[in-house]
């Protein structure tokens, strides 16, 4: 917990300055107004700005990082976690010898880890960003393979006019496929089936 006191003309200005000084996100802070601004008489005689105390709780990204590091420690895995903080998601990239034990069959362990870290770090946080966990570039490579496969299968559907059902995939992977083909002139995509066996179907679209 870090906190700072700040004085400015209005409460809003003081809070904004304090948040900037702490270098944190506004939603991770609690504000306590220590002194209300006083207007003062004629010619600002006795005027005084607002004094606030702003306290920053541990951010969602920090909680997630600590949690992942603790898990690595308890599993005896020697890995470093790099945090890339974006507008829509926070990415944790785990690298090091032996980190592949965290991927699992078809990335199952990675998905499990990501699910748990999202739940653990979201409690009580106003930060709505998704946390993405990647190990040794697995997700990134998988995404590139999915894109290539989507294009290849879309061409086949366009050529033969027959629909193709892809293997069952997690929601974010299906999204990669839908997004990749949404502007394709000859095919359309939708998903069928129940989680966790839901899969994308690429079908022919008459022009």
């Amino acid at each position: 917990m870090k906190s700072i006191e700040m004085r400015a003309r209005t409460i809003e200005e003081a809070v904004a300055a304090a948040v900037a000084a702490l270098g944190v996100r506004r939603e991770d802070c609690t504000v306590c107004v220590l002194e209300e601004p006083v207007k003062g008489l004629l010619g600002r005689l006795g005027a005084r700005g607002a004094l606030v105390k702003v306290t920053a709780a541990e951010s969602k990204a920090e909680v997630g990082l600590g949690f992942l590091q603790e898990i690595l420690g308890l599993m005896g895995i020697d890995g470093t976690v790099t945090v890339v903080s974006g507008d829509e998601c926070v990415r944790y990239q785990i690298e090091g010898p032996g980190v592949k034990a965290l991927i699992g069959h078809h990335g199952q362990t990675l998905d499990a880890l990501q699910h748990v870290v999202n739940l653990a770090a979201s409690r009580g946080s106003q930060d709505r960003r998704r946390l993405v966990v990647d190990v040794a570039g697995y997700r990134q490579q998988r995404e590139e393979r999915l894109l290539a496969m989507a294009q290849r299968l879309a061409e086949r559907v366009a050529r033969t006019g027959e629909s193709i059902e892809l293997e069952a995939m997690a929601s974010y992977e299906r999204k990669v496929v839908h997004t990749a083909l949404q502007d394709h002139p000859d095919v359309s995509t939708h998903s069928e089936g129940e989680e966790p066996h839901r899969s994308v179907i690429i079908s022919y679209r008459r022009r």
Binding site: I71, M75, A101, L102, G104, Q108, T109, D111, A112, L113, H115, V116, L119
Partner: peptide, 11 residues
């Protein structure tokens, strides 16, 4: 969630 916990412990 419990499936995810089991998966991590299994790993």
């Amino acid at each position: 969630t419990i499936r995810a916990v089991r998966q991590v412990v299994r790993a």
